[in-house]
Computed example of a mutant assay.
Amino acid sequence: MARYVLNRLVVSALVLLGISAVVFFMLHLVSDSPGRIVLGQRVSPEAVAAFDHQHGFDRPVVVQYLDYLERLLHGDLGRSYKLNENVSTLIAQNAGRSAMLSLAGLVVALAVAVPLGILQAVRRNGLIDRTATAVSYMLYATPSFLLGLALIAVFSQQLELFPAEASQSHSPWAVLTDPRAMALPVITLAAGSVAVFAQYQRSSALDQLGQDYIRVARAKGLPERLVLTRHLLRNACMPLITLVGTLVPTLLAGNVIVESLFNYPGLGLLFLNSLQREDYPLLLAYTLMGGLLTVVGNLLADVLVAAADRRIEVRR
């Protein structure tokens, strides 16, 4: 297992290196001069040239990339052009709030999708199964911003149950300390994942219900509740672990829409503002975080599945 994890870490590092190279060069192709972005369009070419020379932006792109990698290895993500602050500081200030929002959305999605998927499998082709499948497809096809706007229109403007704006607290625990203000953002973020998880859980549970160990458990006269919770649940959820690992970056992307829609001060809103300001160091750092979450999520999913099911042989 240790050798397997080590090999995966090496591959993950190479993937991150590739992501950083592609994004770095693409961002530098968008604009010919970071100095023009920082100083504005009306500044003189001489001032732009002086700024670029002072910060090394007039050097070859490959040299700039190697310099960026060296700084990255020392934990330096660069400095925001527009905010005039270290990118690592900005990320540290906002990462906790986004992480808690993503975690809350993931917990809500799993809490709804796992029992719903098993219920659909047990009652397959029945009214519950057909209704849940139709709703899941509808949620999956609905863009997050449209769902969020619909929730605001119904629950905030008409019923006045929840505020239209998320909590403006800078504490990462706003999801717990101000649940009323965070209800709509969490539901919006979780809805798409519920649709995917429930259908995936249904398919996995249907596959397990046809296995011999389920027939043996029922033949022994065990109550159906014990058959489902003690035997079916564990094996049916293992494929879902892998899916959760692959969808972690999707939550990060969903944060951009949800945080901007509900004006929640997190990484998603910071990324959107940096995109509008063409703040490339922030854009690059956010993209690298997405790549890091992707490789770490897949690695953790593989390790958890191997640990949960001893029958799975990890190639050494």
Rank of each mutant, 00 (worst) to 15 (best):
A164H: 07
M238R: 13
D32M: 13
D302S: 08
G78L: 05
Q168T: 10
V38P: 01
R36T: 15
L189M: 06
P60L: 05
V22D: 04
T294H: 10
R130A: 09
A166H: 07
E70T: 15
L232I: 09
I19H: 05
P34L: 09
P172V: 08
V22F: 14
A153R: 14
R42A: 14
T250A: 10
M100S: 09
L17P: 05
G40H: 11
M1Y: 13
R8K: 14
H231S: 01
F162Q: 03
Y280G: 02
N7V: 15
A205Q: 10
L304T: 14
P185T: 10
F25M: 08
G117N: 03
R202A: 00
L261R: 07
N263C: 10
P185I: 07
A141N: 12
Y286A: 07
R234Y: 08
R315E: 14
L14C: 10
S203F: 06
L83S: 07
L206K: 06
S98P: 02
H53E: 15
L159W: 13
L293T: 12
S80E: 06
L284D: 02
A217H: 09
L228V: 15
G78M: 11
P239E: 13
F145S: 10
V87S: 01
S204Q: 09
V87E: 02
T229I: 12
H53G: 10
V175S: 01
T188A: 12
G291L: 00
G75D: 05
S274P: 02
V154G: 01
G297V: 10
L149M: 14
H231F: 13
N125S: 13
T287H: 06
D279P: 02
A217Q: 11
V258I: 15
G56F: 07
A307I: 10
A92L: 15
L29C: 06
W173S: 03
I91P: 01
Q201E: 11
Y213T: 12
Q41G: 04
N7W: 15
A307F: 13
N86D: 15
H231K: 09
Q168W: 04
L283Y: 12
I152A: 00
S274I: 08
V295S: 04
A166Y: 07
V258G: 01
C237Y: 13
D309P: 06
T229F: 14
F262R: 02
R130C: 10
Y4W: 08
A92E: 13
N125V: 08
A306I: 14
L103S: 00
S274L: 06
V244T: 07
R71E: 07
A121C: 04
A121G: 00
S171C: 07
A174T: 05
K82G: 00
N255V: 12
L159A: 11
A50V: 15
W173C: 03
I187D: 00
R225C: 04
L292P: 00
L275E: 04
Y213Q: 04
A195D: 00
G117H: 09
